[in-house]
């Protein structure tokens, strides 16, 4: 898209988890986007991308929820979400969801093609090369499944984290293995999910890093919840908090002030 000399208008898709649990991630996203030269707006009519219904086999409700998103985000140059999962839902699954609705398809595709995950948007679309942030610590990074396999998020967060002052990256063995969150999976099959997140906790602890970062709040809550329950002393944060230099604003996920 040709935006030379013009600041792109970005609609921020906050995501329902960030809205409810961790608004700081939303503000971090706003800051990063504005620093990258975007004009950020937050449509008030947004709720959720519809994934809970979609992945439960309830297409009708998923479509209703999705339709509201499509309407709310019309007219932006880009739509950006601090989540690979929600961005992937809009970008890859909305076209599938409306496959039989010929009238909706042009609008669906138009939205899908403009929708991005936050960090990959900053790097791949806005050409961001570094961030002005400081984080004194050793971090390890978990590649959330949808971001990794649906949105191609892998190198971008590492590239930007590499420019954060004071920060050291230690790679996580099995970084691409699912943490066991899986939306409703973690409550439908708690024992299996627990096993998966337990394995993840061991891998994270094994790196010796003091902080775990990732790009999806669902996975982060799952891992943070497991860490505090099992006494794994690793701080958990959304990658945007660190990149936006806002880690000082809130305690790590699941920790008290």
């Amino acid at each position: 898209m040709d935006n030379t000399g013009k600041r792109p208008r970005v609609g921020l898709f906050v995501t329902c988890l960030v809205d409810l649990i961790r608004p700081t991630v939303g503000f971090a996203a706003v800051k990063l986007l504005e620093d990258a030269g975007c004009i950020v707006e937050v449509p008030a009519a947004q709720v959720c991308c519809g994934q809970p219904a979609y992945n439960s086999g309830d297409r009708a409700d998923a479509r209703d929820v999705a339709r509201a998103v499509i309407e709310a985000f019309e007219g932006f140059d880009y739509v950006v979400a601090p989540s690979g999962s929600c961005a992937g839902m809009i970008r890859l699954h909305y076209p599938e969801l409306f496959a039989e609705d010929a009238a909706m398809m042009p609008r669906v595709h138009h939205l899908a093609n403009r929708t991005h995950e936050l960090v990959s948007f900053l790097v791949d679309v806005m050409g961001v090369k570094f961030v002005a942030a400081r984080y004194d610590g050793t971090i390890t990074y978990h590649d959330s499944c949808s971001g990794l396999r649906e949105m191609g998020v892998k190198a971008q967060p590492r590239a930007l984290l590499g420019t954060v002052a004071g920060l050291t990256i230690k790679e996580l063995p099995g970084a691409e293995t699912c943490c066991g969150f899986g939306g409703t999976f973690c409550v439908k099959y708690p024992e299996i999910s627990n096993r998966m997140v337990g394995d993840k906790a061991k891998d994270v602890a094994g790196t010796g890093a003091d902080t775990l970062l990732a790009g999806d709040l669902g996975c982060l809550m799952n891992m943070a919840g497991k860490f505090t329950r099992d006494g794994v002393d690793v701080k958990v944060r959304h990658v945007a908090e660190v990149l936006a230099d806002m880690a000082g604003d809130v305690p790590p996920i699941g920790r008290a002030k």
């Binding site: 809205d19 649990i21 961790r22 409550v187 024992e191 627990n194 919840g225 329950r229 996920i253 699941g254």
Partner: peptide, 17 residues
């Protein structure tokens, strides 16, 4: 299903919106 094995991280107190 969640809290059987995990703690539930507390929200910050207000929603983003």
């Amino acid at each position: 299903g969640w809290t059987q094995f995990r703690d539930f991280p507390a929200p910050e107190g207000k929603t983003f919106h």
